[in-house]
C-alpha cells in the first residue's frame, strides 16, 4: 500500500485498483478548522487535475483536484455532519473520496513521501 502526494497537498493512498483521496496534514493545519466539505457524486468521472471536491474553512474555500484520472466509487458521507474529521485525522477518518484509478501510470508522476516532505519543509 503506497501513498502518493500532489504539489497541491492532496494525498492518494493506493489500495489495489482504488485510490483513497484526501488532503494532507500539512494542508489541514494551514487551512485551520474545516467547516464544510463539498463532496463529489459517486460515479463522477474525473480527469487528473479536475476539481473533485471543495473544503471550506471559515474564511477560505479550497478546491481539491483529482490526483489521477478515474471514477469516484465512494465518498466519505461522515464529513457532511462532521467536517472536523478532516482536521482530526485527514488520512484516516478524514478521507474525502475513493477513486477507481483509470491509469496507474499517472501515479508515477506524483510525489512520494520524501518528495512531499521536501516540498513542505
Amino acid at each position: 500500500m503506497t501513498t502518493k502526494f500532489t504539489p497541491d497537498h492532496e494525498y492518494i493512498r493506493v489500495e489495489g485498483a482504488t485510490g483513497v483521496v484526501g488532503i494532507t496534514n500539512y494542508a489541514q493545519e494551514a487551512l485551520g478548522d474545516i467547516v464544510f466539505v463539498e463532496l463529489p457524486s459517486v460515479g463522477k468521472v474525473l480527469k487528473k487535475g479536475d476539481e473533485a471536491a471543495v473544503v471550506e474553512s471559515v474564511k477560505a474555500a479550497s478546491e481539491i483536484y483529482a490526483p489521477v484520472s478515474g471514477t469516484v466509487t465512494e465518498i466519505n458521507e461522515a464529513l457532511s455532519g462532521e467536517p472536523g474529521l478532516v482536521n482530526q485525522d485527514p488520512t484516516a477518518g478524514g478521507w474525502i473520496y475513493k477513486i477507481a484509478i483509470a491509469d496507474a501510470g499517472e501515479l508515477d508522476g506524483l510525489l512520494d513521501d520524501a518528495g512531499y516532505a521536501d516540498l513542505t519543509k
Binding site: E56, A60, A61
Partner: peptide
Amino acid sequence: LSTREQHIRREK
C-alpha cells in the same frame, strides 16, 4: 457561511 460570497470565492 461567507465562503459562498464574492470576497472569498471570487469567480466561483
